[in-house]
């Protein structure tokens, strides 16, 4: 039962200042899916996400949200495409000078004509979805990192987007809070049917949440694996992929290999 893709990335090539980051990436995300972009540090996952939400223009290739190619559509179409998506940034990116409530209200005020009191109720509702209804009047600097992530999630969901982009939602959080965030993501996906695109390298989250994923790799600058996480862990033909999913170090093996040789040189 495969639904039509809601996002399609077609032969996307990303480079900054003539330095190639990702080369010829293609994949698609089905409606209602929890899709993950995984890979080691520096593999270009965040860059890929920034291109998928139109923050940067790719070197080549295209990104379709719905039927619109956001890399080269008119401004109006682009704005419409943006209304379909919500983004939770790695640093939560709440506006520091505004309270949590004002942050969540920001897109609602801008893009709806609801009266003020109704918006205030809506904000409370959105915040209660992430369990922060008592923190409406707190500033982002006054709450913990996990709460900021949840508030950012509430803001990303303010306009009921069809697609949520989450950049490392549980990075830098303690295991319990991280698990809570995962739980929250899962429940939002189940209850609202929101398509989730999650950039992460947390193995727990990958196994708990993702239905399908693509894995990027730094040296080849391409997708080295695509599929369900458990399948990839056991069945992937690429040792690098199996290593990633079973959390084994690469350094150690290499060193052990070379150790013998350099011992003979010195001793």
């Amino acid at each position: 039962m495969r639904q039509s893709p809601i996002i399609e990335v077609k032969s996307l090539t990303i480079s900054y200042n003539n330095e190639l980051i990702l080369d010829d990436i293609s994949f698609s995300v089905a409606c209602g899916e929890i899709f993950m972009i995984v890979g080691g540090s520096g593999s270009g996952k965040s860059s890929l996400m920034r291109h998928m939400i139109g923050l940067e223009t790719p070197h080549m290739g295209s990104v379709f949200i719905g039927n619109v190619d956001i890399t080269q559509c008119a401004d109006e179409e682009f704005q419409n495409a943006l209304k379909k998506i919500g983004v939770l940034f790695q640093s939560s990116a709440l506006i520091g000078s505004m309270t949590i409530g004002e942050n969540v209200a920001l897109p609602i005020i801008e893009f709806t004509d609801l009266p003020k009191a109704t918006i205030a109720n809506m904000v409370r509702m959105k915040l209660s979805l992430v369990g922060l209804e008592c923190y409406v009047d707190h500033l982002p600097s006054e709450i913990s990192g996990g709460m900021r992530k949840r508030a950012g999630l509430a803001r990303a969901m303010a306009l009921n987007p069809e697609i949520l982009f989450l950049d490392e939602p549980s990075a830098g959080l303690d295991p319990i809070t991280a698990a809570e965030i995962d739980e929250l993501i899962l429940s939002i996906n189940r209850s609202l049917g929101t398509t989730m695109i999650i950039v992460t390298h947390e193995l727990d989250s990958i196994f708990n949440l993702s239905q399908r994923l693509v894995m990027l790799e730094k040296s080849s600058k391409r997708i080295i694996a695509e599929g369900a996480p458990f399948e990839l862990k056991t069945n992937s033909s690429n040792p690098m992929v199996r290593k990633f999913f079973s959390r084994r170090a690469e350094m150690k093996e290499e060193r052990n290999k070379s150790e013998g040789s350099h011992e003979t040189i010195i001793f």
Binding site: G86, A93, E110
Partner: peptide
């Protein structure tokens, strides 16, 4: 300083992605 802080903490990206 205000805008630079917002820039490096992705707040401007967030505004952009919210359609502002």
């Amino acid at each position: 300083a205000e805008i630079a802080t917002m820039k490096i903490s992705e707040e401007i990206d967030a505004l952009f992605s919210m359609g502002f």
